[in-house]
Computed example of a mutant assay.
Amino acid sequence: MGRDHGFHPVRITRIIQETPDTRTYVLDAPFPYRAGQFVTIKACGTLRSYSMSSAPETDTEVMTTVKRVSGGLVSNWMHDHLAPGDVVETTLPAGVFCLREGGEAGGDIGVPVVAFCGGSGITPILSLAKSALAGTRRRVRVLAADRDAAAVIFAAALGELAERYPDRFEIRHHLDDLQGFVTGESVREFVGGDTDADFYLCGPAPFMELVENALLDRGVLPEQIFVERFAQTTDPPPAPEEAPEQDGTLTLVLSGKRHTLAQRSGETFLESARRAGLAPPFSCEAGNCATCIAQVTEGEAKMRVNNALDEDEIAEGWVLTCQGEPTAPHVTVVYED
């Protein structure tokens, strides 16, 4: 397998107060990563994924930024209890919200990068912007929507990028208290003539839905739009009780033991395992952490969501079982020992 999806102790070297409710944690973590990826942190008996605000092309330290969320178990614990020198458990960096390979080859300067973010959604966007500006000749344009001026995260860093790359970087701050909420019209106006761009969206779900619909209305193709979604669940959803059986079998190999059962329509591998009375590893059930990873050794599968595996791992048959479903009559899935 290409990467280790386990947890590793990582020491916090510094904490930067970005806004009253947002902190950047500088990690002593010599992990390779790509701009736009995230780490999953284990704390308070649960997992949460947080994007990197650093970029390997520009930063010698790995940084992840966390906004305090009302009622948020992990974000509040991190803000209230962590200090420099403390150790947290994290995965290696993961995620596919990255610069598209080949995007720098569109003409002399490459395909433009146009990003829309709301609130802390600026975190992976900053990482992508730093990477694109330092590592390519691509133009980068960002519309960042925030509640008010005090809520703007990375204002200084974004301003520095605008000064360093005046011909290639544009940051537009949209403040809801002064301009109202972002509208489809304002999205289309910001796009302008850059309909050939790669578009990156991160922020609250309603915001991203509005932006995505506005882009599609503007004529942008779906494959040009990249969206980062962190869906958190508190309890695993129940397996379907009366889902119809399909003409096929599913074999699950857990701890070296084979269990074969009939496939059920719309049932994930994890749900099938529970139906068989098995207890495979899982955690977030959102396609983020890869705790539930297994390998398809026979047949084929599809994933509803994948924020953890790269293309090489998928090509080797690895699948997130909380998101994977069989797409062949006979499928065998082998969990790691």
Rank of each mutant, 00 (worst) to 15 (best):
M1G: 15
P9M: 01
I12L: 12
R14T: 12
I15T: 03
I16L: 15
Q17R: 08
R23H: 14
T24Q: 11
Y25W: 11
Y25E: 05
V26S: 10
D28E: 14
P32E: 14
Y33A: 07
R34Y: 05
R34N: 08
I41K: 01
C44R: 13
R48L: 06
Y50G: 00
Y50H: 04
M52H: 14
A55E: 12
A55P: 08
E57Y: 07
R68D: 06
R68L: 12
R68K: 14
L73H: 06
W77P: 05
H79F: 06
H81G: 00
P84T: 06
D86T: 03
D86N: 10
E89G: 04
T91C: 08
T91N: 09
T91L: 00
P93M: 02
V96Q: 13
G110A: 12
A115H: 05
G119A: 05
I122F: 12
S127G: 09
S127W: 04
K130T: 04
K130M: 06
R147K: 15
G159P: 12
A162H: 09
Y165D: 05
R168F: 13
R168M: 04
D176K: 05
G180N: 11
E185S: 11
E185L: 07
S186N: 03
R188A: 14
R188F: 10
T195R: 13
F207C: 01
M208V: 06
E209V: 13
E212C: 09
L215T: 07
R218Y: 14
R218P: 00
V220L: 02
I225Q: 11
I225M: 09
F226I: 02
E228G: 04
F230N: 01
A231I: 09
Q232P: 02
P238H: 05
P238S: 10
P238Y: 04
T251M: 01
V253C: 07
G256E: 07
T268W: 11
F269T: 08
S272Q: 10
S272W: 03
L278G: 05
S283C: 05
C284H: 05
G287L: 03
T291Y: 02
T297E: 03
E300Q: 14
W318F: 15
T327M: 01
V333T: 10
Y335R: 06
